[in-house]
Write a protein that binds this DNA or RNA. Sequence first.
DNA 1: ACTCTTTATCACCGCATGGTGACATTGTCA
DNA 2: TGACAATGTCACCATGCGGTGATAAAGAGT
Lengths: 225, 225
Amino acid sequence: MTTKMKKRSNNAAHTDKVVRSRDRVATREGIIRAVGSLLAREGFMALGINAVAKEAGIDKVLIYRYFGGMPELLRAFGESEEFWPSISEFLGGDIETLLSMPVVEIIPTVLINFSRALRRRPVTIEIMAWEMVEQNELTEELRRVREDMAIRLFKELGAKFDDADADIAAITTLLSAAVSYLVLRSRDTQVYNTVDIRSDKGWERIEEAITMICRQCLISSTSKG
Amino acid sequence: MTTKMKKRSNNAAHTDKVVRSRDRVATREGIIRAVGSLLAREGFMALGINAVAKEAGIDKVLIYRYFGGMPELLRAFGESEEFWPSISEFLGGDIETLLSMPVVEIIPTVLINFSRALRRRPVTIEIMAWEMVEQNELTEELRRVREDMAIRLFKELGAKFDDADADIAAITTLLSAAVSYLVLRSRDTQVYNTVDIRSDKGWERIEEAITMICRQCLISSTSKG
DNA sequence: ACTCTTTATCACCGCATGGTGACATTGTCA
DNA sequence: TGACAATGTCACCATGCGGTGATAAAGAGT
């Protein structure tokens, strides 16, 4: 009683199909790029097998063939794209000039570079928002690369601060968390607590507050020892 | 060719159905309570018409009949529940003792009360996470009540700070954003930047850092005038 | 020219969702 | 007691999702 039938024959009439590239690597790259543009344009909520296939202009079965499924595709995207800022971007170019700065300035400089680097990376912000909802290969990659970055950063300039009595880790935790939250909220909010988190003007206020906080707190710890 | 048929007749045999309350307001309340427990137990991702109906143990059509749909149900939940902390909870009981404190202590006290109030409200945290993903009647209510709270809070104790040269609004923005982010991340993360954001121990570090930051920065602005 | 593998397309499945119309049951009021 | 509205139940629809097997078409090797 099952109504199965192949109606492939009557489709042979209209052959107005676009001729595909028939190039495996190009198709793969196209799919991966589709993930990026979809993420930037529509957000992670719109990211699914069907949407990616449509965005890339290919059949979704190719995603299964070339990647295996969504998790593997996300992993491939995470490996291909430089969605996370580089360490030199945090340090602000060359590390020598940074290390020559007074201790009090290094941390706020890195934090401000962090905020600026984030603000110009909508895809990264999107993945951070995704992290609030569920874990997947991409948010895993984000977490991995972020922790890795923190460790390397600490190795570079962490030794300078261990004699302080201020809980520097707690302070930087607060400030980086604040930057993350404000960057995330700027996706859907213009003004947060009287601060315009979508304008450079507002972010200047934030940057100055960061600088001031670090200066005040680190002064107390260095002027003491 | 449409295969429509009513097979209602053959269901008349087994009448092992539970007798329902047949009490409109009780059913309404049950549905609203189902939203709350579902939100707390499964998170906002699991919140849908079908899930709420199953959780409440009723037919989903009643949700449409009694509320109209999901938006109206969310609005009803938002109005029924005290998901957001009260202003006295922020102020820490009576406002008199708070206002008698030194100026430098008031802000960190309110911020710490804010973090503690949030931490014991998983449903509120869930709605805050939801806010990162989409806007709906509930997140609208959250935003409304939060901004209202900020205004009232500022009215209560804002006049004390306007002569300071420090951008107090920016600083409190940073700190409250930091608290929000850390509370949110504690849903899925144990340790964030070496701080255990799931233990009271970790939150003591955060509270002390908040206190220190406020003290240092407000000292500078008050010891100057 | 012939086969055989690779690349791409299509039609379909099973499932869960939001949403609705038809029906059954209970309580109330005249 | 009988009519009628309120309350609750069920079957069904359309849609979108992730996922898969059958088929077509292009190249490569002989």
